[in-house]
């Protein structure tokens, strides 16, 4: 009799997933709201939002195709026709910076999300399970971490070949161990808290405890980690581009633009300075946001 009543009231897995998603978004929104209470957050969040919007609509704003040659106008200076001038092939720098935003932000965000997903999964499970398995897996993660991340990325990309999806995978793999570390230690401390013990005594299944009781409480740590990781991802992706292992030509990449423009610094510094400015302000924005999120954790909370 008792079982029948439970089944009747058990929500469908689909609506349960939707609810989890909504809760997740709500808690992200809450962390961002807290961050907006700090000066760093108030500068960082709008800056990041601006770039993300740019990444979404950039290609439609661009006056020219980023790959279109205007051979008559090579090395043109800034003008009303070419906002930031043109490069050695007469391509419009402004358009190239705009379309570069889409690729670098897309790649970095996707790579960060992948790294967070993998790391969270590993960190949460290992933290909760503990014991020998945890010991072995975390040693492996340490091994991965004991390898400079740029070198690891270079190796992986050399093997897989350079493409958007491979860069995303690379970033994900490179980030997984450190995210796992952070999440594991958060899980370890939350696991010993009394409300988790109460849930165990109630007889809640492990999956429920991990995802419903523990995961939401890692949100402050997770959002800070996400923003820090995002800034590393942008730095990593653009460095890979600069080294020629990023997005392949002719599509535009800020790192690659700087690398290629170096030989023309004397003639037209804007070729280099425009993407340099873009990548710098973007990372500054992300770092400010991270700072804001971190500071917000120390402020007293009110609902």
């Amino acid at each position: 009799m008792a079982t029948a009543t439970i089944d009747q009231n058990q929500p469908s897995p689909l609506s349960e997933a939707a609810r989890t998603g909504r809760r997740f978004l709500r808690s992200i929104r809450r962390e961002l709201r807290y961050a907006m209470a700090t000066t760093s957050g108030r500068i960082g969040l709008p800056l990041v939002t601006f770039y993300i919007l740019l990444a979404l609509v950039g290609p439609w704003l661009a006056p020219y195709s980023p790959t279109e040659f205007h051979l008559a106008d090579r090395f043109a200076g800034p003008s009303t026709t070419y906002f930031l001038g043109t490069d050695e092939f007469g391509r419009d720098i402004f358009s190239r910076v705009l379309s570069g935003a889409t690729s670098i932000i897309g790649v970095s965000v996707a790579g960060t999300v992948l790294g967070l997903l993998l790391g969270t999964l590993v960190g949460l499970t290992m933290g909760y399970v503990g014991g020998k398995v945890d010991e072995i897996v975390m040693r492996l993660m340490d091994g991965l971490m004991s390898f400079p991340s740029l070198l690891l990325a270079l190796l992986v990309l050399t093997t897989l070949g350079s493409s958007h999806i491979n860069i995303v995978i690379t970033i994900g793999v490179v980030f997984m161990p450190s995210v796992a570390r952070v999440l594991r230690s958060a899980t370890l401390s939350i696991k010993t808290m009394e409300f988790v013990q109460s849930a165990r005594i109630r007889g809640e299944p492990a999956l429920y405890i991990v995802f419903r009781e523990i995961l939401p409480n890692t949100m402050p740590v997770l959002t800070v980690e996400a923003s820090v990781r995002l800034s590393y991802a942008i730095l990593l992706a653009s460095s890979l581009g600069f080294l020629g292992l990023g997005v392949q030509p002719p599509s535009s990449d800020w790192g690659l633009m700087i690398s290629e423009g170096r030989s023309h610094i004397a003639d037209s510094p804007l070729i280099v300075l425009s993407p340099a400015f873009a990548v710098s302000t973007l990372v500054i924005g992300v770092n400010l946001l991270a700072e804001g999120l971190r500071e917000a954790r120390e402020l007293p909370k009110e609902d």
Partner: peptide, 15 residues
């Protein structure tokens, strides 16, 4: 320092 950690090495170098 916040600005400095936000600049990739190749940007600093080129600048």
């Amino acid at each position: 320092s916040l600005a400095a950690i936000s600049l990739p090495e190749f940007v600093t170098g080129v600048v």
